[in-house]
C-alpha cells in the first residue's frame, strides 16, 4: 500500500525527470538535418538549459516533499 506521501514524492520525481527529458531531448538537443546547420547552434527554446537544471532540482526535491509532507491524524 503506497501512502499519499509516497505518491506525492513520486509525482514530483516524475515531473522532474519528465522536465529533464523534454528540455534535453526536445528543446535543447540539436536534432535535425543537416546537423551542423547554423540553425542548431541555438537551443530550440531560449533558456531550455535552465529548464533542464530546474528539472534536475525538482527531481531531487521529491525527497524533501516526502519528508515534509504533513502528517495527518498522527498516523500514516
Amino acid at each position: 500500500m503506497i501512502s499519499r506521501r509516497a505518491w506525492a514524492a513520486l509525482l514530483v520525481l516524475t515531473a522532474g525527470i519528465a522536465l529533464m527529458v523534454v528540455s534535453y531531448l526536445v528543446l535543447a538537443a540539436p536534432w535535425g538535418f543537416p546537423p551542423e546547420s547554423e540553425k542548431f547552434s541555438n537551443p530550440r527554446l531560449a533558456f531550455a538549459p535552465l529548464l533542464f537544471i530546474i528539472g534536475v532540482m525538482i527531481a531531487f526535491l521529491a525527497a524533501v516533499v516526502y519528508e515534509l509532507w504533513p502528517q495527518r491524524g498522527g498516523k500514516e
Partner: peptide, 29 residues
Amino acid sequence: LFRYARPQSPFFGTFTMVIAGYLFASLVY
C-alpha cells in the same frame, strides 16, 4: 549558460550536472 548552453559541449555536463545537479542534491541531503 542558462540561455544557450548546448548539450554537444562537454561543458554542458559540467555546468548542469556538477554545478547545478550535484550541488542541489547535496544541499537537499
